[in-house]
């Protein structure tokens, strides 16, 4: 087996008394689209900056393609970064920005120009070569930053909240575009985000960070369907926990369990329940109509509360609003409930 593109071993970083990263071990395979997901202050950006070389770890090592680069300066590492604020050089044209890395590496003029133009074409920015960054929109600047990094053909591309500054519509477009660019160039993409939806839709694998540690690593489906800890269950999607006496009453088991909202069916009290299903009765305390779906907040008779998400396939807001205050039965398949490690 070949060496992973990135290997982090026992990585720690403290800023004085603040422990930003408290022991991270990760292997990121070649060609992978890998997301580091977590709330702000969870240490994900610090890890990214240690891979880029902007911060040096308090202890632990960073390997790129099997080579220990922990002590190397940023300019000695075969990685490039797309910065959160894009960090385009404001006094240079778009073309000069994209050519910067190649000029530093003394790539001959003709080849430099050709590669820069190809990189700009790959992010659909032909015809913008002479513009200054200040004359571009946020989305265009984002793509220039991407082209400026990709043109160097790094081993790993690091993206720090690359879509954070864009509005929702543009962000969704860029998610699709980033994914297709990554497939095209085949470079390992390692990106940092606090947006769980972004992490789930774009990446091959996700590492969920909390308080300087990795809580769970897995494919988006694994992270979402089988969260390993209460934190992951809560941060990625709605947590919907059943615990304590409620778990005893509803499931007949000790511990804390979770079911995703869309896995719950809102049924009438007398509806039949399959042998492979579990159910719990409760009172609808809140109904939120959101166009394609409706969110029901149900206070369980056994204690606790669950949120159920139902597609509005046949119903309108009139129909669902009337359910507030009524007694219902929530039904779900047993395989959709999972135990949570506290």
């Amino acid at each position: 087996m070949s060496d992973p593109a990135v290997r982090l071993s026992g990585l720690r970083k403290s800023f004085g008394a603040v422990h930003a990263v408290t022991g991270v071990d990760l292997d990121i395979a070649d060609g992978e689209f890998f997301a580091m997901l977590g709330p702000s202050g969870s240490g994900k950006t610090t890890v990214l900056r240690m891979i880029a070389g902007f911060e040096s770890p308090t202890s632990g090592t960073v390997e790129l393609g099997g080579v220990d680069v922990t002590r190397l300066a940023p300019f000695e590492r075969d990685v490039n970064t797309v910065f959160q604020d894009y960090a385009l050089f404001p006094h240079m044209s778009v073309l000069d920005n994209v050519e910067y890395g190649l000029r530093v590496k003394r790539v001959p003029r003709a080849e430099r120009r050709e590669r820069a133009l190809a990189a700009l074409a790959s992010v659909r920015l032909e015809g913008y070569e002479r513009r200054r960054p200040g004359q571009l929109s946020g989305g265009q600047r984002q793509r220039v930053a991407l082209a400026r990094a990709l043109v160097n053909r790094p081993r790993v591309l690091l993206l720090d909240e690359p879509l954070g500054a864009l509005d929702l519509k543009l962000r969704e477009e860029m998610q699709v575009e980033l994914k297709s660019i990554q497939r095209e160039v085949g470079i390992t993409f390692l990106f940092v985000t606090h947006d769980q939806e972004e992490a789930l839709t774009m990446s091959d694998r996700v590492a969920v960070f909390d308080r300087g540690r990795v809580e769970q690593v897995g494919t988006p489906a694994e992270i979402y369907e089988r969260p390993a800890t209460a934190f992951v269950a809560g941060f990625v999607g709605t947590s919907n926990l059943i615990s304590g006496s409620a778990a005893q009453a509803v499931l007949g088991r000790e511990g804390t369990f979770s079911v995703r909202p869309e896995k719950l069916r809102v049924a009438a009290l007398g509806d039949p329940v399959d042998g492979a299903e579990h159910s719990a009765t409760g009172t609808v305390s809140e109904v939120v109509y959101a166009g394609p779906a409706t969110r029901f907040v149900v206070e369980l008779d056994a204690g606790g509360r669950l949120i159920a998400l139902q597609q509005n396939l046949q119903v309108s807001s009139m129909d669902v609003m009337g359910l507030r205050g009524t007694k219902v039965r929530l039904v779900w398949h047993r395989r959709h409930e999972f135990a949570i490690v506290s």
């Binding site: 902007f54 940023p74 300019f75 490039n80 910067y100 890395g101």
Partner: peptide, 17 residues
């Protein structure tokens, strides 16, 4: 912005450059 200095280093430039 500090990120401009980091970006230059990231793209391979040493201090003087």
């Amino acid at each position: 912005p500090n990120s401009l200095l980091e970006a230059a280093g990231d793209l391979g430039a040493r201090g003087w450059r």
